[in-house]
Amino acid sequence: MFPLTSSFDFSVAAFLAAAFALGLAFGFVLERAGFGSGRKLTAVFYGYDMAVVKVMFTAIVTAMAALWLASAAGLLDMAEVYVVPTNYAAQIVGGLLLGAGFVVGGYCPGTSVVACASGRYDAMAFLAGIVAGLAAYAQFVPGIEAWVRDNAQGEVTLPSLTGIATGWYVLAFVAALALAARGMAWAERRFAGLRPR
């Protein structure tokens, strides 16, 4: 039955309308989480407001558990779900660059869109930086693209890598979230003095 794209013949317009509607919900939730503010987002790196990890971790665990249940109940065919191919070197190097850009610039691509919609001039500069960075990447180092894709291993997930069933990972992530919540509450008390006034 799910994903709908495999059981239902979407017209192009209907598919794009669905994408727009999902984006509406995505943007609204990010805004309500406080992710339209670079100051709140980068606070995670100084420990006085861990909202970024709380929100992301909870979202990941929620979706992971629900996808696992839907798949186990036969409602969702995971074989029809697109998973980004794995290239560890590319993902680690790219992640390091993105993390550095995140704390320097204040945003990541999705949150900068929300901050832009909230009227933040720095988010508009950040978006201009994204466009400039993409143009420069395509212009000066187009060869990296082929290397990343040609050396990708296809779909590699923790269950496929270790042979341990998905359900155990779901359980482990729920337990890790509960522990992390305690740790983050401690960090927020420990670093409360860093919060700028």
Partner: peptide, 26 residues
């Protein structure tokens, strides 16, 4: 602040290209 935002955006863009995705997609 605006200059750092611009530079950070460019870094994030290159990182997302190499990693085949950003905070949302990856």
């Amino acid at each position: 602040r605006l200059a750092l935002a611009f530079g950070g955006g460019a870094l994030v863009a290159v990182g997302a290209k190499i990693a085949l995705g950003c905070t949302s997609g990856q």
